[in-house]
Amino acid sequence: MLEIDKINVITKDSKSKILKDLSLKINDGEIHAIMGPNGTGKSTLSKVIMGNYKYELTSGDIIFNNKSIINLSVDERAKLGIFLAMQDPTVIDGVTNSEFLKTATTELTNERINYFDFIKNIDKCLKDLELSEDMIHRSLNKGFSGGEKKKNEILQLKMLKPKFIILDEIDSGLDVDSLKIVCHNINDYLKENKDTSVLIITHYPRILEYINPDYVHIMTDGKITKSGNIELAFETEKNGYNGINDVRKKISNE
């Protein structure tokens, strides 16, 4: 599905190096999680996969379904089925949620949408996520609570049906019950779409108890420094990132 091959990434403005020789391979149907300290480059990685123009790839490649995507525009990547649920979804005043979803659906499928089906589908997704119906007529993310913004990202996911999903801190801002609802929705989606792969970026193992990852990676200073299974997430929560490093140092000294 996705293969990130030794990428080096700098910011376009300040030219500061954020990702350093980072590699990661995610196969069809796999769920990967990345944890790492604040400012280590997790969100940057997600935006670079999506094609954000604030970052420049100085070397390396990103392969999606056997094709390099690094020269594709953001919308072209989305059309291949890549979806990024953002850590901080952007407020767009004046563009309503429904107008936005209609436009996105039309452009993704390249077909005129059937309004009746479209509305039926939205209504069902809103119910599944326990979001109120008026959310759909409001300006995109404007005045949404932290949790509503995150649920709205999942609403888009359910409507737009991607093949590769990146969840950047989808769990932050969600209360206990909302987290359960969101994870159930994602799990249901994955059950229906078995080949879909997921990259979960998180600070807490709790979300990983609902959506079980095949692999957990630790990212520090712009690269992946350790990989393992869900135990690694619990260990990190217990000992912190320095704790893990200490353990590693000890092992390598021995």
Binding site: D75, K79, T90, T103, A104, Q156
Partner: peptide
């Protein structure tokens, strides 16, 4: 740029 990125990340052309 953030607004454009958000819209385009859902498959909407520039």
């Amino acid at each position: 740029e953030d607004s454009l990125f958000y819209l385009m990340s859902r498959g909407i052309s520039y």
